[in-house]
Simulated scan of single mutants.
Amino acid sequence: MTVGITALISALTILGGCASSNRGNVGTHSSATQNVNARPGTSEARQAVAYWAQAYEKDRKNRRAILGYSEALSANEQFPQAKAVLRSGVIANPRDKEIASAYGKVLAMNGELPEALSVIKQAQDPQNPDWKLLSAEGAVLDQMGRHENARQVYQQALKIVPDDASLLNNLGLSYLLSNKLPEAEYTLRKASALPTADSRVRQNLALVLGVQGKFSEAEKVATAELDPKQAEANIAYLKTMLQNRG
């Protein structure tokens, strides 16, 4: 049995760091950053774009505005605009590793994987590696199907930040993409137990459990994160998918 790659790639954390740490770097306007999580096309998503567009127009070189605006655009699936904002941001802030990482993320989301990898690696300092850039590099390598290389990069990053939930999340999904299910479960359990783990990490654990046929435990984990009916529907869909795959 192989696992559907499209659904898993969307769960890879390219920027590194959990939601709280990343958004804290972007800005302190809670309503705007929370709306970045809204579904594309909703009024909340459009409001987030409008808020950050105004901030960006005031100062196009401001890193806070660049990151906030590009994230809001990406969340609303306005990828070409996000790409343009970050390309300008990289030019204006050539040494800013977070902007470079965000640019790599958008390139990867556009399917421009070799370019994304190049941008991320160029921003890296080999003598003093940045773990977020390593996480970004690993996520892109996973999308390219180079899972063994990706895991080597994640392990390098984990030497810098041993208990980062986003890194462990990516490592666990890399194992899953390689159909190394026990390793994936072990790693995602470790990630989900950390205080910095977000809902996405625990949902990924539920996915790994379900893929192994541990539906009861998977539903228990999923129900803690989702509406019970949605969790039940997700597990039912996963059962059907696995049955169809034989």
Results as ranks from 00 to 15, higher is better:
Met1Asn: 07
Met1Gln: 10
Met1Pro: 09
Thr2His: 09
Leu12Ile: 11
Leu15Glu: 13
Cys18Gly: 10
Ser20Glu: 10
Asn22Glu: 08
Val36Gln: 01
Glu44Asp: 14
Arg63Ala: 15
Arg63Gly: 02
Ile66Ala: 02
Gly68Pro: 02
Tyr69Lys: 02
Leu73Ile: 02
Ala75Met: 09
Gln78Asp: 11
Gln81Trp: 01
Gly89Phe: 01
Val90Ser: 03
Val90Asp: 00
Ala92Leu: 05
Arg95Asn: 09
Ile99Glu: 04
Ala100Asn: 06
Ala102Val: 01
Tyr103Cys: 04
Tyr103Thr: 05
Asn110Tyr: 00
Asn110Gly: 12
Asn110Phe: 03
Gly111Glu: 08
Glu112Asp: 11
Pro114His: 09
Leu117Met: 07
Leu117Asn: 02
Lys121Met: 09
Asn128Asp: 14
Asp130Met: 03
Trp131Glu: 10
Trp131Asp: 04
Leu134Asp: 05
Ala139Tyr: 02
Met144Leu: 15
Arg146His: 15
Arg146Ile: 06
His147Asn: 13
Glu148Ile: 13
Ala150Cys: 05
Gln152Pro: 00
Leu158Ala: 04
Lys159Met: 08
Pro162Gly: 12
Ser166Phe: 06
Asn169Phe: 03
Asn170Gln: 02
Leu176Val: 04
Leu176Ala: 15
Leu177Gln: 04
Leu177Glu: 07
Tyr186Ile: 10
Lys190Tyr: 07
Lys190Trp: 06
Thr196Glu: 14
Ser199Gly: 04
Asn204Val: 07
Asn204Glu: 06
Gly213Met: 10
Phe215Pro: 05
Glu217Met: 09
Lys220Asn: 13
Ala224Ile: 05
Leu226Val: 13
Gln230Leu: 11
Lys239Glu: 15
Asn244Leu: 12
Arg245Cys: 04
Arg245Pro: 00
